[in-house]
Amino acid sequence: MKLSYLPGCTLKTKAQDLDLSTVAAMGALGVELEELPRWNCCGTVFSFADDDLMHQIAPVRNLVRAQEQGGEQLVTVCSFCFNTLKRANLLVKENSDKLDTLNTFMDEEEDYKGNVNVVHLLEVLRDEVGWEQIAGKVQNPLKDLKVAAYYGCTLHRPIEAAIEPPNKPEALNDLIKAIGATPVDFPDMTTCCGSYQAVANPEIVINRTREILTSARESGAEMIAVSCPLCECNLKENQKELGELRMPVIYFTQLLALALGVDSHLHQCEQNPADARPLLESKGLIDACSATYI
């Protein structure tokens, strides 16, 4: 199976491990992710203003690119890209006048017809591959590993853009189960990490991180799996200050790649308190590496 894929800006720099482990793991599952030959930044956050179309151009332009590729689905793994593209898509599908305005404005592009579906990688894993299929392909079951599935905001809110009914997030838990690890439910699975307030009000992010790590720890988790590079950064960067609360943070695609026996790109992890390697090593899931907690 071949699907159009938009990695997003951060996956080409700071979150390369997310991009590379995604492509590797999907390859092992027989899904070829074909990066759009031309794409731009999606804008990262959906504009909530009813009278603002200027900030819908960036996501819709990417939908035009996906349409040019002839794909019906556009796959993303970055939660920010997913939410922004999906909401912009819903907006123009439901408001033909807005779509017309945008198409007229982007007169150098072919008209977007509204036929692309934006899907998150977890949806592809669940709906196109299937948890049992995945379990069947696991080479290296992640036994005895207790993983908190941290979904963050954008996979489940708002309800119309959610990957599943938002009151009971389970896609990531199911994946964790399928690869042989133990998913840990914790109360802050969909609590905000502070998001872009990392720029203007970093103390908000520290408070959020403290709360999320505390509840994950109290629920017995040994590591946190995420799909968003900003969640990853926010949960990771503040751990030095949070002393006892340190806990490895890892992209779910890295766990998946590890279980499937393909390159999980863990070597891209920097050595920091949230480095997952020492824990995975102590469980015998990866070969000895030089990483240590710092």
């Binding site: 804008g43 990262t44 872009y196």
Partner: peptide
């Protein structure tokens, strides 16, 4: 403006992923 991009510390810009800056500038 709530945030002035040119007043952010160099460490903040170097440390944060692009999505943090882009969303902050879009909202702020």
């Amino acid at each position: 403006d709530y945030v002035n991009p040119r007043e952010l510390s160099q460490e903040t810009i170097a440390k944060l992923p692009q999505i943090a800056m882009i969303s902050s500038f879009r909202k702020h």
